[in-house]
Lab assay of single mutants.
Amino acid sequence: MATADDFKLIRDIHSTGGRRQVFGSREQKPFEDLVDLGWLKRSSVDSRATHYQITERGTSAAL
């Protein structure tokens, strides 16, 4: 179930172009929650960072 923080984060991601790069596993937790909701997808993972991209469902949630 989505929380107020989830909606705040997806709106922030949407307003800044729909993509986010995250460093460190602790910082990934809120983004992984949005992946579980179907609002974000992991577009790539490298040794230092994970890249996320907003989905259509995420765009709808952000509006």
Rank of each mutant, 00 (worst) to 15 (best):
D12C: 09
H51R: 09
E27D: 13
K29C: 05
K29S: 07
L9D: 01
K29H: 05
H14F: 14
T16A: 11
K41S: 13
G58M: 00
R57D: 11
T50S: 07
D33R: 15
I13F: 03
K8N: 10
R57G: 07
E56L: 10
A62E: 01
E56D: 12
D5G: 09
G38H: 04
R57C: 11
G38T: 03
L63Y: 06
G38D: 04
R57A: 14
S15Y: 10
L63D: 04
H51Y: 14
R57V: 10
R57M: 14
L37W: 03
K8C: 07
T59L: 13
E32Y: 05
T59E: 10
D33S: 13
Q28M: 09
R48F: 14
S47N: 12
K8F: 09
V22Q: 03
T50D: 03
T55F: 00
S25C: 07
R26V: 14
Y52C: 01
L9F: 03
R19A: 11
D36Q: 15
T55C: 02
F7M: 07
L34D: 00
A49K: 08
F7Q: 04
A62M: 03
F23G: 08
K41G: 06
A61K: 04
K8V: 10
D12W: 10
D12I: 08
A61N: 04
K8G: 06
A49W: 14
T50Q: 06
E32A: 09
G38V: 02
E27A: 14
T3I: 04
T59W: 06
E27H: 11
M1Y: 13
T16V: 06
S47I: 11
L63E: 08
A62W: 02
Q21N: 08
E32T: 07
Q53A: 10
M1C: 12
A2L: 04
A49I: 11
W39V: 00
E32R: 08
R20Q: 05
D33A: 15
S47E: 14
K29Y: 04
I54L: 05
K29Q: 10
A61D: 02
L34Q: 01
D36A: 15
E56T: 10
W39S: 00
S25R: 09
Y52N: 01
